[in-house]
Design a protein around this nucleic acid. Structure first.
Lengths: 205, 205
DNA sequence: ATGTGTGAAGAGCTTCACAGCC
DNA sequence: GGCTGTGAAGCTCTTCACACAT
């Protein structure tokens, strides 16, 4: 471990490396060279070695990196080794997609409960996650010790939900509603704008 | 217009600026200073002025930038001023979310047709987009002159669909399936891994 | 007075070249 | 031979300071 400052870009690439490594692990690969990992991630081998060098010496010269060990190291660096509990609010299309998505646990968080205001949905389970009445939002967040809220409700309801999440004690909010939620000082908010994200991808295509 | 090379980061930030400007336009604002725009985008005013300076002189000294004019300039730089036709394959949860999402047209592309293999869905319209039988995929892509394919089918079907899109003549593919599609040389592929994207956001929270 | 536009300085990131280890 | 780890060089991006326009 070095006292040097770590580039932002390095952190960003660690997510890329992790995803590729999880793929390799599934395929049963035990070791990987910076060369091979670089190809999978579309980056240069030297930058991979440099990136890792900020955190320690993870490889073996002449051999490469142990896939599983490297996964653990990156998980640790990215604070993904203790699972974060998340609540999903809004079981519409995006909400459903998130509930049905596997692989969040590999990335360090787990949706443990969902909320909606639709009587037909309340009480059901999707992918083993119960859907609760949004009326009980604050109390259930507190009793279950949930740290992250994912907002997937219509734009008109997003602001109210954000405030209620704050009251329920969550530390961070991820919103799929077109931004500008009332911010409280001790809560972090990130917005996902699907249209912008897709435009960006399309531009680079 | 300068002959100088334009930083990648500048292009990335233009998307941010555009989104903020569209917001301001909706609120009826006619001009904006680099200062104000910077606050909305969480960047520094000087970088905004520098970014624009690569492409021309868009502002008026002592006044600021004309919101609508600036939107047009950025749209032009990002090649968003002629709408790209996109086809969506797979009307499941993610597919539905995309069909119901408004605002893609502001970002330069439009889903004009969707495909699925479920008899219950074929023939219906979502948000004015018809759902067609995936059996007719290749021929309809060609007759409608579609340039972009969005894959939102289960992982097991993704690879086959990618090849059929290529045969249908699309130039680029955006996939929500966990990556590694068989690549042909004259087609661009970008993958969206929701789990990784969310992990990244959570990390920065 | 207010706010843009920009060369030059400064900071940060990537690449290189090679030493070190298996 | 093969591959990692890393100081130093090279390059790119950001910030500064101030000229310039309204």
């Amino acid at each position: 471990m070095k006292p040097k400052t770590i580039p932002e870009e390095t952190i960003g690439r660690l997510f890329l490396y992790l995803r590729a490594l999880l793929c390799l692990a599934r395929e049963g690969k035990e070791t990987v060279s910076s060369q091979k990992l670089a190809e999978a991630c579309h980056v240069k081998p030297t930058i991979i070695r440099k990136d890792f060098s900020y955190f320690g010496e993870f490889g073996t010269r002449g051999v490469g990196y142990d896939v599983n060990q490297l996964i653990q190291e990156i998980r640790h660096i990215l604070n993904l080794d203790n699972l974060m509990k998340a609540a999903l609010i809004g079981v519409g299309n995006i909400g459903m997609a998130l509930l049905n998505y596997t692989g969040f646990e590999e990335e360090g968080f787990k949706i443990t409960v969902a909320f909606d205001n639709n009587r037909d949905k309340i009480g059901k389970k999707i992918n083993n996650v119960p859907i609760e009445d949004v009326a009980h939002l604050e109390s259930m967040l507190q009793t279950q010790g949930i740290q992250l809220g994912i907002i997937a409700v219509p734009e008109s309801a997003a602001s109210e939900i954000a405030q209620r999440l704050a009251q329920g004690g969550v530390k961070a909010i991820l919103s799929f509603a077109p931004c500008q939620l009332i911010t409280s000082d001790n809560i972090q908010i990130a917005c996902v704008d699907l249209a912008t994200e897709m435009a960006r991808l399309v531009y680079y295509l």
